[in-house]
């Protein structure tokens, strides 16, 4: 399965990873190689096989509805790149 350069750009955009123009071909090549190898899967007939999402057949445990987390904003924001008035700052979002 060959991945085209244009496809690499679409995927990179979905993943929000900037890729320099000159690196696109390289990614196209290595992704094609990985996906080509992954392609082996298609040889197996898995009709009727239930997908396995978790190795153990367990079910979700529930937590009591209690407030257990104190306000530690200053601690949590100590390593934040840009904060003002308790808000995380990002470049202006255009609606």
């Amino acid at each position: 399965m060959a991945i085209e350069a244009a496809e690499v750009k679409v995927i990179a955009h979905l993943a929000r990873i900037g890729i320099e123009e000159e690196a696109v071909a390289g990614y196209a090549r290595s992704l094609s190689e990985i996906l080509g190898f992954v392609e082996q899967m298609s040889a197996v007939d898995t009709t009727g096989v239930e997908p396995l999402a978790h190795p153990l057949d367990a079910t979700q445990r529930l937590r009591p509805d209690e407030v257990t987390e104190p306000d530690q904003r200053e601690l949590y924001q100590a390593g934040a790149p840009a904060v003002e008035a308790g808000l995380y700052l990002v470049p202006r979002v255009v609606e």
Partner: peptide, 15 residues
């Protein structure tokens, strides 16, 4: 379906 779902099905076969 071709990748993720298929892989999870194979996961079951392996298990």
């Amino acid at each position: 379906d071709a990748y993720y779902r298929k892989a999870q099905q194979i996961r079951r076969l392996v298990a």
